[in-house]
């Protein structure tokens, strides 16, 4: 039994942990894996080339970008920011919850902006801090916790709702990988079975946010 092809997995692990150039690590691992399984150089390049061409569908989400670029230069961020600013006069947990649902709604329609840069830093975190300060003075520890919670809310809604959109890169990667493994599934099936977990994760984080509100008001009293 030839166990050498497994070195490819090891290379990926080590390369990612040591933060080498990601693209180079993955392509290098593909070359080494193929060579170690006994393929010739020509065969190796053929398998890599065929694998790349057959998986072009994964990059189809690039086709959605010209439209996103165009609406971005015509005020997408500005309108989104305005929508979020409308959540005033609420507790920190409630602000975060409304933000999470809006963010999920955006992702459902393929608007995958970097939430941390676009919304959390300029908007959500300051709103959460202001709302908490209105209830009383904040200790440095509380400020740190509220900032971190704002970032966490964006991550959670982002991760678990992005695959609701059929042309997201995650859905396309899943669909292409399953096809090459001989178990073809369509992008819309993937999006469909993402729904339950998207709902559960938003619910769990919402409850956690409300629980945070409750704990904070208990500490005030």
């Amino acid at each position: 039994m030839n166990y050498w092809p497994l070195i490819g997995i090891l290379l990926i692990l080590v390369g990612f942990i040591l933060k080498f150039d990601t693209t180079a690590v993955v392509i290098f691992s593909a070359v080494v894996t193929a060579l170690c399984s006994g393929m010739s150089i020509t065969k190796t390049l053929t398998v890599i080339g065929q694998g790349f061409v057959d998986n072009r569908m994964v990059s189809l989400y690039f086709l959605t970008l010209p439209m996103i670029g165009l609406i971005e230069s015509h005020g997408l961020r500005e309108v989104a920011v305005k929508t979020i600013t409308k959540i005033k006069k609420a507790t920190p947990g409630k602000i975060l919850n409304v933000y999470m649902y809006l963010r999920g709604l955006g992702l459902l329609f393929g608007i995958a902006l970097s939430g941390q840069v676009t919304f959390v830093r300029p908007l959500v975190s300051p709103m959460v801090l202001a709302s908490a300060e209105a209830q009383g003075k904040l200790s440095p520890h509380e400020r740190e916790m509220l900032k971190a919670r704002s970032a966490a809310a964006d991550n959670i809604s982002n991760f678990f709702t992005q695959n609701l959109f059929v042309a997201s890169s995650g859905v396309l990667l899943i669909s292409a990988t399953m096809k090459s493994l001989g178990h073809a599934v369509s992008p819309s099936q993937i999006a469909l079975y993402t729904i339950p977990m998207a709902v559960i994760s938003l619910l769990v984080e919402s409850i956690d946010n409300l629980w945070m509100d409750k704990k904070r008001s208990r500490n005030e009293a």
Binding site: T23, I27, F52, N55, S59, L173, L181
Partner: peptide, 8 residues
């Protein structure tokens, strides 16, 4: 993503 799919 496409390069990773190729790796798969």
């Amino acid at each position: 993503p496409q390069i990773l799919a190729m790796l798969g």
